[in-house]
Amino acid sequence: MSITVFFVAIISSMLINNVILMRFLGVCPFLGVSKKTESAVGMSVAVMFVMVIASIVTYLLYYYVLEPNGITYISTIAFILVIASLVQLVEMFIKKVSKKLYKSLGIYLPLITTNCAILGVAETNIASNYATDYGVLQGLFVASTAAFGTALGFGLIIFAFSSIRERLDGANVPEAWKGVPISLVIAGIMALAFLGLGGIV
């Protein structure tokens, strides 16, 4: 396994299969917290944190607990439980370690439980068969790299979008298109632009 694998994993999960624009995961926070650049950055940092940890934990859980015992059919329940408790843990940990970080990330953490991007990445990691391609342990590295790339892609889009939206506040938009409708059309145009990145890898 060479370094190219990781490079490809990051590029493809960040740009080509962008989590928001191409896979439609995490659209709720995308529309919810993208009104201001500050909150967009806070949300994407919190998502990155939870996404990487959650994908490592769910991956290990799947291959070391669920699969040997033949109970892979409860993976959805197990994953969502792990993610919910993980979010709680991370929240407590950040609160203990850094009051300042907690103040800036705290309000976004409870929202992450219902962010479909987290569960989506956990399920995609299993569905992409990294374990059969690279072996269970090396697959873990690829899976966590892909999760990191996905979180980067999420952050990139949500940051760019919040900047556009801040500009849009001053624009003269027709009454009916104000707010979310025009934002969705802009997201559509961004998705068109991202289609062009399809040939990179």
Binding site: L21, M22, F24, E175, A176, W177, K178, G179, V180, P181, I182, S183, L184, V185, A187, G188, I189, A191, L192, L195
Partner: peptide, 24 residues
């Protein structure tokens, strides 16, 4: 293009605008 991701965003935006126009 409408079967792809971009079309999804644009069509939902369109319908939302229709709903918003009615409620306005």
């Amino acid at each position: 293009v409408f079967i792809g991701p971009a079309g999804g965003f644009i069509v939902i935006g369109l319908w939302l605008a229709v709903f918003q126009a009615f409620s306005n």
